[in-house]
């Protein structure tokens, strides 16, 4: 009954509407789905793609944000940066930090995955605790670690003194400051690596291990010749994603060291920030942004190429 009513009204409607309006409607119908994608596309166009192009343009100007005039200076900003020792110093700091962070996060994450890959509620609970710091704000994490690293009253120096060693000003000593920053990042990141490694471990079919065990393989051989190679896609994914996010280190530096002591933690993003908002060298900061972005693009492309190659010879 209801059905027939509906078809009746539909027919009636189509009889009444002229052909031009009907065509317009079917045309609109074709576009309606697109209209639902439009807000997302428009937001990205305005707040991502346009600023990306604009940053690129600004990088060829001598613009200073506090002044209205903007002069095209060609590649001057790039030649300045590439010819300046600070640039290589900042790159070195960033890569040193990043490599320490990636290696420690992944090695500890893998060890944790092997240790915590047990199906029980207790282990699930413990995994939950280990993953939690990943979601704690870096600002708050930095605050706790500033307190732990405090030269006079910090817990770390108390522990150090138990071993008869002298107290260290962890964040003021240029030898210890980078490792001290890395520790905070590793603390936050190992849980994530662990969760992904466990997902990887669980995707390895158990009959591989059984077959190898029958052939007399010991635990180390199982790990070396089955677990590690079959985890390699996950490892690659984690290396690249951790590398990229680690290269963007900013918050912990802004809170814990302000780039110091003596510029020893002046990593790229922190340098971009101070160049743009303390020195107002907008053009030069944009050139640094573009160099930084190209590095990230290359890393992403590398990941894509390697993972594609993997798929090829496995398939």
């Amino acid at each position: 009954m209801r059905m027939s009513n509906k078809t009746n009204t539909k027919q009636a409607a189509s009889v009444r509407t002229p052909a031009s309006v009907r065509n317009w409607r079917t045309a609109l119908e074709k576009w309606k789905d697109f209209l639902f994608a439009f807000p997302a596309l428009a937001l990205l166009a305005v707040f991502l793609y346009y600023p990306l192009g604009n940053s690129f343009y600004i990088s060829f100007t001598n613009w200073n944000m506090t002044r209205p005039d903007k002069k095209f200076v060609g590649i001057d900003n790039y030649t300045y940066l590439l010819g300046h020792e600070d640039f290589y110093q900042s790159l070195k700091i960033t890569f040193t930090y990043t490599i320490m962070d990636v290696v420690l996060t992944l090695v500890i994450g893998l060890l944790l995955a092997l240790m915590f890959n047990v199906s029980s509620r207790l282990y699930a609970f413990m995994r939950g605790i280990i993953f939690m710091p990943y979601y704690i704000s870096m600002v708050i994490a930095a605050m706790v670690f500033i307190w732990i690293y405090n030269g006079k009253y910090g817990l770390l120096n108390r522990v150090v003194s138990l071993f008869g060693l002298d107290p260290v000003e962890w964040l003021i000593n240029s030898q210890t400051v980078l490792p001290a920053l890395v520790v905070v990042s590793v603390w936050k990141g190992v849980g994530f690596a662990m969760i992904l490694f466990i997902a990887g471990l669980r995707s390895i079919p158990s009959d591989y291990y059984e077959a190898a065990a029958i052939d007399g393989a010991n635990r180390w051989m199982l790990f070396r010749y089955i677990t590690l190679p079959l985890l390699s896609p996950m490892t690659l994914f984690l290396v690249i994603t951790t590398f990229i996010s680690s290269m963007q280190v900013f918050q912990s530096i802004d809170i814990m060291t302000n780039g110091g002591p003596l510029q020893s933690t002046n990593a790229i993003v922190y340098w971009i920030y101070t160049m743009a908002f303390s020195q107002f060298r907008t053009g030069r900061a944009s050139a640094l942004i573009m160099i930084f972005f190209v590095i990230i693009l290359l890393l992403t492309a590398l990941q894509w190429l390697i993972s594609r190659k993997k798929v090829h010879y496995e398939g």
Partner: peptide, 26 residues
């Protein structure tokens, strides 16, 4: 269903690669 769906979706995915620090000045 609309024209250019796959291509436009790539534009969305590409946004994942761009960090905040690249776009904040403009």
């Amino acid at each position: 269903r609309f024209w250019g769906k796959e291509l436009l979706f790539l534009l969305i995915l590409a946004a994942l690669i761009v960090p905040d620090q690249v776009t904040f000045i403009p």
